[in-house]
Design a binder for these strands. Sequence first.
DNA 1: ATAGGGTTAG
Length: 784
Amino acid sequence: MQEFKQIFKIHRFLSLLQGFSRNPISIKSIHAQVIASSLSEDEFLATKLVRSYADLGRLGDARGVFDGIPQRKVSLWKAMMGGYLRNGKYSEVLELYLMMRSSGVVTDCCICTYALKACISASDFEMGKQIVKDGVGVGLEKDCYFGSLMICFLAKIGDIDEARRVFDEMPERDVVCWNSMIGAYVQVGGFDLSFGLFFEMLQCGVGPSPVTLASLIQACAGGRLELGKCIHGFLVGFGMGSDVLVLTSLVDMYGKIGDVGSARRVFDLMPMKNLVSWNAMISVYVQNGLVPEAFEIFCGLLSSSGGFDSAIVVSLLQGCAQIAALGFGKILHCCALRRGLELNLVMSTAIVDMYAKCGALDMAGSVFDRMKERNVISWTAMLVGLAQNGCAEEALELFGQMRDQGITANSVTLVSLIHACAHVGSLKKGRSIHAYLIRHGFMLNEINLTALLDMYAKCGKIDSAERVFDNRSISKDVILWNAMITSYGIHGHGQKAISVFSQMKEEGLEPNETTFISLLSACSHSGLVEEGISLFDAMDRDHGIRPSDKHYACLVDLLGRAGKLKEAEALIDRMPFEPSSSVLEALLSGCRTHKNIDLGMQTADRLLGLDARNPGIYVMLSNIYAEGRRWSEVDKVRSLMKKRGLSKTPGYSLIEVGNKVHAFFARDQSHPCMEQINQMLESLKTQMEAAGYIPDTSCALHDVEEEVKVKMLWGHSERLAIAFGIISTPAGSVIRITKNLRVCSDCHSVTKYISKIVRREIVVRDANRFHQFIDGNCSCGNYW
DNA sequence: ATAGGGTTAG
């Protein structure tokens, strides 16, 4: 009788749990009653409770119930692991899997499937291999479910042959097996193989499911627009003309190919849309650089149904990152906070990336610090943020922390570090990362090679950059070619830049906007006026690229630098649109170099009317007014700068000595070796004066006495860095300096003297280009 | 189905 009562109670609770599974408060109270009825160790009820709690996302409560059962049957393990899996808690799934294995409970197919799914989602390949081994040990590779998942996993780790073997040896194949193998081929880029298998499948009499077509459409997104359109046409024939999954894949495919219009047409004609479809359309716009349109779709979603999910927020965050829309980004962050999604791994990574790309490093850092869980991607997002905002030292330091926490870098991480090394001119660290790439067998693709080439060039090693470029094992894309052109440009090898451009055309590559920016600036630095003009003319005529204001700025710079100020002025008058501040700035710079005070001040007056955000412009403005002795304008510029919330960028120089990049600011006396540095500077000064050096005080920006001006010149950061280089590196070795601003003409002549006095090659990278000082001469030929 | 990487004037 007693027993019967218990069973009755259990059934009542089970049906209660069934009925109230959507309501957390009811579940709690049912749970309480279960405990009160001394039924808390009942296996059935516990399993049901775990499932109910997990479905509500209350994994802690679920785990409490789970832990309260000493003798667990497979169904309970299944409920708990399934709960973790559906909530994205992959490491917990795997933890339970290991616990279960060591406690000797016999696993079944479902358990192994859950565990392998977790490995795939969390990209935990080592664990995945272990689970595959366990599964194969009990013959699960012949099972449709586990076998299909194995195929996916093997494709993910790149072992496509093994995946095919598993597929071939399956005794029975349902549509899911076929889909997995087709999907596997799509993943490794086996376009023809995936279609071949599709036709084989039809011949075997297995009809495609929406997943099949979605995979094939995804395969077409790699660039087979025509075939994609064909499939689009055949959809109705397969009875999937209105399937949400298939149509969403089509939207995605058109977007990846860049046909935004078709994507939008498919989207608009979808009879049913789910959140994934809305998100697909939003990310089509984001990925094609049409961020405002993405937000428009989002507004459409809000007014049509009102709901959205975290994936949509993530896509919009990407959009904000792209256009540096900090305001919108903050709103989305709040949105995530309100929904308790800030700590979600993908979401928080997207938030970190958004803040970093908007230049809000403090915000990025604080979100990053709060993250409970971080993977390579989140670390990389933070590293990229630091690297791109000029905090290369911090990036390298963070990389150390990342390694201390046992996170293994991948090629994306390394590329961002190479970028950071390029920024601060850290040749040693850059080289060591190059070695790391090779040692760990990373594929040297276009992206890695571009980063390396750029790093070597920016660290002054143009020969190493050339060697990277000469790698014949890969097909070079336009960005890699551009990087080589840029490198020659900043090293003052204009002719070589042009000949690389010819080679590039011979190999059938189409130049883009950036190519011409690099080319024109290369011509500018080498004084190749005729060549620059003819390249500019060829842009639209031969390549259909309309010159943008950046191109005009380059050409004005080219003419101005060569002293052809009249021509530069005429070019600006001929421009088809209003000159931007950068175009006028280029003209102003030419005026300053060639001491054309009148045109300079005229240009300065025009510039003042524009709301320029670059502090460098104001510095140059006040310079030109100072040279024209218009002191009231000098004051005006200073106050205008303040009013617009801008301040002069402090000049600094960097030098890598030992394992450290040392930074010197102007008049900086904080370096531990300062006493020796000052002694060295004194001695150099004396020797230079004996050799005929006379300071050029027009470089000192203030209206002060001559003597004070000279003193200020000797505080310029590059002199401090060079002096430190002389005392801390072996005699005769090259001294490499990186400076954030342009070198002033006095520092330029001082460095020439120093190179002769100490018999050292001194390589200075300033904001624009390289100067290689040898025996009293500079590679720029005083033209910079 | 959703997160991270290479070139760009002064």
